[in-house]
Amino acid sequence: MIKNEKIKAAEVQLTGLNGEDLGVMSTQEALLLAKQHKVDLVCLSLMTSPPPCKLIGAGAAKVEAQQAKKKASKSPDKRKVKEIRLNLAMEDHDRDTKQSQAERILKKGDSVKLVIQVHGAKEGVAGKEWAEQLSKSLAEFGSKTTGVQVSGKQVVVQLDPNA
């Protein structure tokens, strides 16, 4: 976080204490304004010209940065991918158990990767059909992110939870 005298830009796009737009002004003017109000001048981004800056109460900038960091750690990109291994020779009860396990994982907010073990081309077709059937029955909890992939000895499909 760049603040006060560390801001090297000649001009800044300034936002006031209450979120009002104060327009483009020289960095020196913005610093004087910050000192008058006894607050910090904080640069929000260096990617634009002039960089957007904001007047923030002393100490509040640090708290705001900590909150942003905390919120970023809870982002949906941190989803776990749980793998469930299946076999075509499984009994119906075991299939139901694995399906309910996948439902629980999707409800919790994690992704599910269904891996069906197959042997040969004929079983590959049956495995693909079963994967399609499973993804349809889990449609209310999650949607396919990848198509059903048949490769050698396994059929794989990944489901992400519905938002």
Rank of each mutant, 00 (worst) to 15 (best):
M1D: 05
K6F: 09
A10P: 10
V12A: 04
G19I: 07
E20H: 09
D21F: 13
L22V: 01
Q28G: 08
Q28R: 13
E29W: 04
A30S: 08
A30Q: 04
A30I: 11
A30Y: 06
L33V: 11
L33I: 14
A34S: 13
Q36H: 06
Q36L: 13
Q36D: 15
H37G: 00
K38V: 11
K38F: 08
V39W: 03
V42K: 02
C43P: 06
L44H: 04
L44D: 10
M47G: 13
M47E: 15
T48P: 00
S49G: 00
P50I: 03
P51S: 07
P51D: 08
I56L: 12
G57F: 10
A60W: 05
A60E: 15
A61S: 15
V63A: 15
A68H: 08
K69P: 00
K69T: 06
K70Y: 09
K71P: 00
K71S: 09
A72S: 12
K74W: 05
P76C: 00
D77K: 14
K78E: 07
R79D: 01
V81Y: 01
V81E: 06
K82E: 12
I84D: 02
R85L: 10
L86T: 04
N87W: 12
M90L: 07
H93P: 00
H93I: 14
R95E: 05
D96V: 04
D96M: 11
Q99K: 15
A102Q: 02
R104K: 15
R104D: 12
K108Y: 05
K108H: 12
S111C: 11
K113N: 10
I116C: 03
Q117D: 14
Q117C: 07
V118R: 02
V118Q: 02
V118T: 03
G120W: 05
G124Y: 04
G124Q: 13
V125Y: 05
V125T: 10
G127C: 04
G127D: 06
E129R: 12
A131L: 06
E132Q: 13
S135N: 05
S137P: 00
S137Y: 03
S137A: 12
G142F: 03
G142N: 03
T145K: 13
T146Y: 03
G147S: 13
G152F: 03
V157E: 07
Q158D: 09
P161H: 07
N162W: 01
A163I: 10
A163M: 09
A163R: 13
